[in-house]
Protein backbone atom coordinates (compact mmCIF):
# COMPACT_ATOMS: atom_id res chain seq x y z
CA UNK A 1 0.00 0.00 0.00
CA UNK A 2 1.31 3.37 -0.94
CA UNK A 3 0.62 6.12 1.50
CA UNK A 4 2.53 9.27 2.25
CA UNK A 5 1.63 11.94 4.74
CA UNK A 6 -0.02 14.99 3.24
CA UNK A 7 1.98 18.14 3.81
CA UNK A 8 -0.34 20.62 5.44
CA UNK A 9 0.78 23.99 4.20
CA UNK A 10 -0.67 27.22 2.90
CA UNK A 11 -4.42 27.39 2.68
CA UNK A 12 -5.01 23.84 3.86
CA UNK A 13 -3.34 24.75 7.13
CA UNK A 14 -5.23 28.01 7.26
CA UNK A 15 -8.54 26.17 6.82
CA UNK A 16 -7.62 23.76 9.60
CA UNK A 17 -6.73 26.64 11.92
CA UNK A 18 -9.90 28.54 11.10
CA UNK A 19 -12.26 25.61 11.55
CA UNK A 20 -10.53 24.50 14.74
CA UNK A 21 -10.77 28.03 16.14
CA UNK A 22 -14.51 28.14 15.44
CA UNK A 23 -14.94 24.72 17.01
CA UNK A 24 -13.26 25.86 20.21
CA UNK A 25 -15.33 29.02 20.27
CA UNK A 26 -18.62 27.19 19.77
CA UNK A 27 -17.93 24.51 22.36
CA UNK A 28 -17.06 26.96 25.12
CA UNK A 29 -19.66 29.55 24.19
CA UNK A 30 -22.56 27.52 25.52
CA UNK A 31 -20.98 26.12 28.65
CA UNK A 32 -22.59 27.02 31.99
CA UNK A 33 -20.29 28.95 34.35
CA UNK A 34 -20.55 26.02 36.76
CA UNK A 35 -18.17 24.08 34.52
CA UNK A 36 -15.66 26.81 33.76
CA UNK A 37 -12.96 25.53 36.06
CA UNK A 38 -13.09 21.89 34.93
CA UNK A 39 -13.31 23.07 31.35
CA UNK A 40 -10.26 25.28 31.66
CA UNK A 41 -8.48 22.32 33.14
CA UNK A 42 -9.89 20.03 30.43
CA UNK A 43 -8.69 22.27 27.63
CA UNK A 44 -5.39 22.48 29.48
CA UNK A 45 -5.25 18.69 29.24
CA UNK A 46 -5.99 18.76 25.53
CA UNK A 47 -3.03 20.93 24.66
CA UNK A 48 -1.01 18.27 26.44
CA UNK A 49 -1.01 16.70 22.96
CA UNK A 50 2.15 18.77 22.63
CA UNK A 51 3.91 15.74 24.13
CA UNK A 52 3.45 14.03 20.77
CA UNK A 53 5.32 16.81 19.01
CA UNK A 54 8.02 16.77 21.66
CA UNK A 55 8.37 13.00 21.18
CA UNK A 56 8.89 13.48 17.46
CA UNK A 57 11.47 16.20 18.11
CA UNK A 58 13.36 14.05 20.62
CA UNK A 59 13.35 10.95 18.44
CA UNK A 60 14.80 13.01 15.61
CA UNK A 61 17.42 14.72 17.77
CA UNK A 62 20.97 14.40 16.48
CA UNK A 63 23.05 16.43 18.92
CA UNK A 64 23.42 16.64 22.68
CA UNK A 65 21.69 20.04 23.07
CA UNK A 66 18.78 18.75 21.00
CA UNK A 67 18.57 15.64 23.13
CA UNK A 68 18.59 17.64 26.37
CA UNK A 69 15.94 20.08 25.18
CA UNK A 70 13.91 17.21 23.72
CA UNK A 71 14.09 15.31 27.00
CA UNK A 72 12.85 18.37 28.90
CA UNK A 73 10.14 18.90 26.28
CA UNK A 74 8.79 15.36 26.57
CA UNK A 75 8.99 15.54 30.36
CA UNK A 76 7.01 18.80 30.47
CA UNK A 77 4.53 17.66 27.83
CA UNK A 78 3.85 14.38 29.62
CA UNK A 79 3.35 16.33 32.86
CA UNK A 80 0.89 18.63 31.14
CA UNK A 81 -1.15 15.76 29.69
CA UNK A 82 -1.14 13.49 32.74
CA UNK A 83 -1.67 16.26 35.29
CA UNK A 84 -4.40 17.88 33.24
CA UNK A 85 -6.22 14.59 32.93
CA UNK A 86 -6.05 13.66 36.60
CA UNK A 87 -7.27 16.96 38.02
CA UNK A 88 -10.03 17.34 35.43
CA UNK A 89 -11.30 13.84 36.05
CA UNK A 90 -11.19 14.39 39.81
CA UNK A 91 -13.23 17.56 39.54
CA UNK A 92 -15.78 16.23 37.12
CA UNK A 93 -16.56 13.06 39.02
CA UNK A 94 -17.73 15.20 41.94
CA UNK A 95 -20.56 16.83 40.02
CA UNK A 96 -23.78 15.08 40.93
CA UNK A 97 -27.45 16.02 40.60
CA UNK A 98 -29.84 15.98 43.61
CA UNK A 99 -31.41 12.60 42.87
CA UNK A 100 -28.09 10.80 43.07
CA UNK A 101 -26.88 12.43 46.28
CA UNK A 102 -30.18 11.86 48.05
CA UNK A 103 -29.88 8.11 47.65
CA UNK A 104 -26.84 8.06 49.88
Amino acid sequence: MDYTTTILTGFVALYIFMLAAFTGFEIIGRVPAILHTPLMSGSNFIHGIVVVGALWALLNASSLPEQIIGFVGVLLGAGNAAGGYVVTERMLQMFKPSSKTNKE
Partner: peptide
Protein backbone atom coordinates in the same frame (compact mmCIF):
# COMPACT_ATOMS: atom_id res chain seq x y z
CA UNK B 1 -0.98 24.84 17.26
CA UNK B 2 1.87 26.81 15.67
CA UNK B 3 4.47 24.17 16.47
CA UNK B 4 2.02 21.64 15.01
CA UNK B 5 2.26 23.49 11.74
CA UNK B 6 6.04 23.45 11.92
CA UNK B 7 6.05 19.69 12.54
CA UNK B 8 3.29 19.10 9.99
CA UNK B 9 1.28 17.47 12.75
CA UNK B 10 -2.49 17.95 12.33
CA UNK B 11 -3.30 16.67 15.85
CA UNK B 12 -1.23 19.47 17.38
CA UNK B 13 -2.65 22.01 14.96
CA UNK B 14 -6.26 21.15 15.69
CA UNK B 15 -6.01 20.55 19.43
CA UNK B 16 -3.81 23.63 19.87
CA UNK B 17 -6.09 25.91 17.93
CA UNK B 18 -9.28 24.60 19.57
CA UNK B 19 -7.76 25.34 22.98
CA UNK B 20 -6.35 28.64 21.75
CA UNK B 21 -9.77 29.94 20.78
CA UNK B 22 -11.69 28.28 23.61
CA UNK B 23 -9.17 29.67 26.09
CA UNK B 24 -9.39 33.15 24.59
CA UNK B 25 -13.17 33.12 24.88
CA UNK B 26 -12.98 31.84 28.46
Amino acid sequence: GFEGYVLNNPALMIAGMVVGSAGSLL
